[in-house]
């Protein structure tokens, strides 16, 4: 399970992207993180595998503290976290197979990586996973020959080839059309169920978040302002997440967790302008 406690990120410019966010993701649940642009969703996910270095707080994956790890230890920890990106981040000029197999890079020697020599098991599994994400027969295509939806499937295949303990998914659908978005979300939740791993998705389409998630978390201005089951995400909650409205006295439905410290500060508009 992933357990994040009081995660903070202050950029050297003084921008506070995360002001102490805590979150647990367990079992095989799908957790959607929603919030306006600049709320800190991407920063949160990137701090978990330390593509962005957090400035405070702790991240634990199955009891292993990630934040203090150095070079080799961090690389070993990253092998357990599959990441899927908004812009797919495939190696455009390599084949689909090389992209998928790159998920195993944490396990092969540099020399074998250079020669594109991977274990037979990995290759067999790569074929299997390509079949599973619906890209059978595309292994020798170059990534830049594929459509957006297909590329995102390659990205997913790369992440599952890692045999991760958790999938971190950063805006998987914002470069895709609505129909493809649904197909990608279906695939992600299916994998979570079949492989029995949790998925942390940050997403800005609220309807997709509600439809696919087991739990919804709302971020605003670097703070968690909502956490609860999808049905609890009512207009009041949305208003609070997206427009920073004060919660009317006693109106909060059960399950809603408001950020403990000073909600008044979270009600500023400047967060909307900040890019993650």
């Amino acid at each position: 399970m992933l357990s994040v406690t009081d995660l903070q990120k202050t950029y050297s410019s003084g921008d506070e992207a995360l002001k102490g966010v805590s979150l647990d993701v367990t079992g095989n649940e799908t957790v959607s993180m929603i919030g306006p642009s600049g709320a800190g969703k991407s920063t949160f996910i990137r701090c978990v595998n330390r593509l962005t270095e957090p400035t405070g707080g702790s991240v634990e994956l199955d009891g292993l503290e990630i934040t203090g790890l150095s070079g080799g230890e961090l690389r070993d920890a990253r092998r357990d976290m599959g990441m899927i990106f908004q812009e797919y981040n495939l190696i455009e000029r390599l084949t689909v197979m090389e992209n998928v197999l790159s998920g195993r890079l944490g396990y092969v020697s540099t020399w074998d990586a250079f020669r594109r020599k991977f274990a037979g098991d990995d290759i067999a599994r790569a074929y299997e996973v390509l079949d599973r994400v619906g890209l059978k027969g595309h292994e020798d295509n170059r990534a830049d020959e594929l459509s957006g939806g297909q590329r995102q499937r390659v990205g997913i295949a790369r992440a599952i080839l890692q045999r991760p303990k958790i999938l971190l998914v950063d805006e998987p659908t914002s470069s895709l059309d609505p129909e493809t978005s649904r197909a990608v979300m279906d695939l992600l939740t299916e994998i979570a169920a079949e492989d029995d791993i949790p998925v942390l998705i940050n997403i800005h389409e609220v309807d997709l978040a509600v439809e696919y998630a087991d739990r919804v978390v709302g971020l605003r201005d670097g703070q968690k302002v909502f956490e609860g089951d999808p049905p609890d995400l009512d207009e009041t909650a949305k208003g609070q997440i997206y427009r920073g409205e004060e919660i009317p006295e006693g109106a909060g439905p059960a399950g809603k967790v408001v950020a403990a410290d000073a909600p008044g500060e979270a009600v500023t508009e400047e967060g909307d302008l900040r890019s993650t």
Binding site: R79, D80, M81, M83, F85, G103, R104, T110
Partner: peptide, 25 residues
């Protein structure tokens, strides 16, 4: 840089990240 980052996120070392993320580009 996203392509390099994606390779780093799989737990690859920096030489591997260069071979897969920078060289093809």
């Amino acid at each position: 840089p996203g392509q390099v980052e994606a390779i780093q996120a799989t737990g690859a070392n920096s030489v591997e990240a260069a071979i897969y993320g920078i060289v093809p580009q």
